[in-house]
Design a protein around this nucleic acid. Structure first.
Lengths: 210, 210, 210, 210
DNA sequence: GATGAATGAGGCTTCATTCAT
DNA sequence: TATGAATGAAGCCTCATTCAT
């Protein structure tokens, strides 16, 4: 890779990471472009070499982080066959991401709203893919007779995501984060959704301890 | 009621309602204070007789509607003894509010969360009592041996709220709202949480059709 | 005096006194009309029954306080024949007023500037009368051969007033007012001006101790 | 000096000078920031790259001119040994500055004093060194037996400054400036203070004509 | 006379974006 | 590519004044 191209990439990444942090700390509207520039160690104008405008920067963060998230989710679910185990893994995976990339998850929360509301032409398809993974698990479970056929995968996808995300948000916001134990929550939420969808006569596989 | 007091009250309400509509339509940041004033039929300055600043106006909308919401939630749950029925009622109630007060919901769901101050300092405390209602239902169900004793009412409160709230937000934001059927979602989500928490050997009471 | 007229007079005085205090504390531009109203215990609108506008209120304070000041200065100087003694009395009188009516003197300081600068048609003739008293003393001293004929009463009037007023201002502003001893200053300043104007061969009358 | 630095400096100076003129002409409160910007030939926002806000701009004018003034006063007094001659020079210097920098004086004399912040928090400290020069002259005169030992240098510093300053203000404000002859005033005021402080048996050195 | 809620013009300030270097 | 000084549109908010009661 020629050094010039490497440099270019570096700077873009630098800006993206800085923006993620700044947006997470101050909120998108409260954050100034020059804050991002300072944090990234570049000049204000440099940002406009890589992004069309402030909003584009926000969407890019969303897109890029979701790409990463999706790839990792796929990897996490890859080796698992049992839908029940997959749901548990999904929940744990989500909270692990939150814990590891706190800023990222904070920004995603906000963007979810911003992108829907103000950017009419923008559709958060990456988010749908994320949810789609849960929908597929449910449908697979239904096919196998494991889950009730009358549960709606689409509705429950949003519900499951909302449940995880709301708890994650509380954890992010909490002064005392011990009040919001992520691991316990992952298992509790997964368990409720699993049992809640279980067909008559089926039973939960035992929870594997990690 | 003396006319002068009535007038005073009217004007505050006028402004709050106008602000709710305008914020819902254009978004908080895109809305100008003078837009709200015009819609309310008052002068710009009048707004500042009742609200400290633009953000205070936004937070007041939350404050006032939450008070109302809590009172109505209590009323809705009041006559019901069965925890299972209460959960179903809770879910339906939440979505009914969303549908009935669409502008209000839009502001609560979307605009408020873009306020950094609201998110970071304000929200958790005010939601506590709304969530508390669900927590109480779960604990009562546990006491009666209806729900598993190993479910955590606190975690599930946030999860339940998150599930409802996320779906409600999608409905509010959706261009095609038929994609997000509120009644079906209420029952689906309630059912999953109920079954998900049910103790061994217990069974769901049949879903009453409204 | 009919009670209604007494009442009217009372309220005007109330407002004037409140305005003097408020203007002294916050400055004319920083003070709000409603501050004055609150301090006076009247409604905002009431002020406009007695004064044309905020500026008129300021000028009225000036006029009224200067009337009082002039009358008292005349009384203080009345029984004194010796110009030298009169100058000493003038200086002491000025500082006594400052000490007694601190707010008044603060406001006069500011108004002096405001009135000159912004109210083109306004001429602070009351101030000129105040200064005129000093000019007359000087001229009388010259007539009697006590003071040098080549001192300019007009110039020295402003100089004398400036000397007194600047020191008074420092006293007013000082956190530690002991640093600015008014009595000592009165005598020092009077003495310098007296000796400074004395004709050759003349000598100061001894300073009477009060 | 590199061109970039020169340009930056230029713009700050440009703004300061424009502000001085505009404030002198219209008064601080009547002047709009955009007036200053237009006069300086810059955009409104540019002013805020160099000054915190409008009042900071006003205070900066004071700050910068006082620094200059002090340096020039020191230079003016530098070659003179005789305290009496120094006092005359001081007075002439003060009025010469006023005449030469009329706009600056107008701002310092009038506008600054309408700033509550300036008056209450700022002024005394900054004047200290200007006044200190006079105090040192008096003390030197006392040491040499030229001035009475019972004159208080501190009190007379303020008095001297007040005398000069008051007359200067009248000159600045006067419609007919011939009424306030600066040279005559310089000599009159200096003479009064010199003779006023002279020890018994001492006599004034003759006034050198410039 | 007295009230004080309402008015609304006007200005300070911010900050995303540009562009000459 | 990178810079960062400069831009200038736009909007929140203040507060002197009015006027219906």
């Amino acid at each position: 890779m020629p050094p010039s191209r490497a440099k270019k990439t570096d700077k873009r990444v630098l800006i993206t990471e800085a923006a993620t942090e700044v947006f997470a700390e101050k909120g998108f509207h409260q954050a100034r472009v020059s804050d991002v520039a300072r944090r990234a160690g570049v000049a204000d104008g440099t940002i406009y070499l890589y992004f069309k405008n402030k909003e584009d920067l926000l969407l890019s963060i969303f897109e890029e982080n979701m790409d990463l998230l999706l790839a990792e989710l796929d990897a996490a679910l890859a080796g698992i066959d049992d839908p029940i185990a997959q749901i548990r893994t999904f929940a744990r995976f989500h909270f692990e991401q939150v814990r590891t990339n706190r800023s990222v998850s904070e920004v995603l929360q906000v963007e979810l709203r911003l992108s829907h509301k103000f950017i009419k032409e923008y559709r958060p398809e990456k988010l749908w893919s994320y949810l789609g993974a849960f929908g597929r698990i449910v449908r697979e479970g239904q096919t196998r007779g494991l889950f009730r056929p009358d549960t709606d995968p689409f509705i429950l996808s949003w519900a499951f995501f909302g449940a995880l995300d709301e708890f994650a948000m509380q954890w992010v916001l909490a002064r005392n984060q011990a009040r919001f134990p992520l691991e316990a929550a992952a298992d509790q939420i997964a368990e409720v959704f699993i049992r809640g969808m279980l067909a008559e006569g089926q039973q939960t596989t035992p929870l594997e301890v990690t």
